[in-house]
Design a protein around this nucleic acid. Sequence first.
RNA 1: CGGGGCGUGGCUCAGUUUGGUAGAGUACCUGGCUUGGGACCAGGGGGUCGCAGGUUCGAAUCCUGCCGCUCCGACCA
Length: 568
Amino acid sequence: MRLTQLYAPTLRETPADAEVISHQLMLRAGMIRKAAGGVYSYLPLAWRTLRKIETIVREEMDNKGGQELLMPIMQPAELWLETGRWHVYGDEMFRLKDRHQRDFCLGPTHEEMITTLVRADVRSYRQLPLMLYQIQNKYRDEIRPRFGLMRGREFIMKDLYSFDRDEAGLEESYNKMYDAYTRIFSRCGLKFRAVEADAGAIGGSGTHEFMVIADSGEAAIVYCEQCDFAANVEKAELKPIESPEETLLPLELKDTPGAKTIHEITAFLQISREKTIKALAYKTDKGPVLALVRGDHELNDIKLQNQLGCLTLELADEKAVGAEFDSIAGFLGPIGINKDVMIVADTTVMNLFNAVCGANQLDKHWLNVNPNRDFKAAIVADIRLIQESDPCPRCGASLLTARGIEVGQVFKLFTKYSTALKATYLDDNGKEKPMVMGCYGVGVSRTMAAAIEQNYDENGIIWPAAIAPYTIAVIPISHKDAAQMEAAVKIYEELNKNGIETVLDDRNERPGVKFKDADLIGYPLRITVGPKAINENLVEVKVRRNGQVIHYTIEEYLQAVKELLKTL
RNA sequence: CGGGGCGUGGCUCAGUUUGGUAGAGUACCUGGCUUGGGACCAGGGGGUCGCAGGUUCGAAUCCUGCCGCUCCGACCA
């Protein structure tokens, strides 16, 4: 491709409405343009990269026995009514009506569609296992689209669904996909971690998220350097912490004027945060809940929600604390709380001796609180948020934290959808059984953005070679110098002939402009054709990632470049 | 939905406080000159100032309503 022909309008300045680096650079590099909030056009450069990612995904899916198909984006409401998700999915689903006022949606995901497809045609255990996938646009009317392609309302996703005879089969399919995902993101040149995750609203259990490590990531993860443990903080389980044993002292009511926060109470009483109990009042669809964690810990509301099995969970405001909890904000505690309130305590709290907690009275706290003696909890479980330097639940080493961009997730759905949609088969005894399912997603467009978040510098994008829109830019210094142009064209044509995707910057621009654009677009290699190279009959190659300049002879450069690209 | 910010040529922004002929840089077109890190000179095209009302002799500017974008919080690939 000659750059005089390429449709990639670059911008000198960063558009004001782009916040994250991938969004800024894709706009500046002429890769994407916004059509509406969270909805983008992919210009030729972006589309080339997306197709490369898709190709990698396809190869790995096919290698594991996946078969590609394509289902409709527009889906009838009946499917979703059958599983109940038409109502559960809420405002996040784009809905529309046809001319007969029949309800449809734009597919946010395809469990319903694929399951009804398969149930109609699969009858026998002989037809299983089955792995079907597609790559297409998905639609989710996000509460707040942001970060360019990282959280769009329309995005490209690969979704594969596995159908097995039993859980052993599912396990096998799951492991295949886990392995395929590891290969996909490795091939894309990304630094990532597979982390244990919460199953969320899709349902099912047993799930990993593939996180590209980047500071701009929306998810927080913890990982262990001593073993292979890694988890989303939402999910990460924790072992209870034992407290050093103490003689039980008698309960004592203490005046603590104005001490509402853990910080204030520990300063006032001159005690450590580990000796305090933090109480949080929640309103749920299962009634009021008082959640207890140790003062130096944070509550993980997803764990709490999972323990309660409730659909809604929100912090109670001051009025509700008074009305429904018989307490006062800032002085909440389990002792003497309204009898209708369910107490859920973190296991570590129950191991405390002679602790401090709010007394549900203004400016008063209880001292020498001993759980089980002074209060009982309806549920005792792991409900706290994991923190940096917490011990690894596997090996006990100190954990580290990082931020991640979720680019893929693998899910064990078991029979949630096959049961709801009656997708059954006959086993070898002629007995009807629900298929055991899994689903596996890759955010293709998000992967492109994540690759940029992880590979850029002040001059622009630094593409991993595997997913670069073009691999090499050949830049003649002077547009008017016939010898340079001739040499440049020759190299350009030779590289393309050898299957290396190359552009020729044949624009009548000063070299600085061409260099800036090449850096911005992020070609892994640049070949500069100027007087130096011409006079000495050398090919000058510059590596985008580290700025290294290497000179090769005309005879050796092609092979050398091929080798070099393997390392990029 | 709640809370902040912003809507003026493709892009970045000034002008709004104090109403009076719509501006700059960049990008684009023409010509010249130039060519190893976003040159220079000359000429040129392009904007219903987000939309709709209102106040006024006169509105980008003041008032009202609406729309859109964006950032911070509850969701997720």
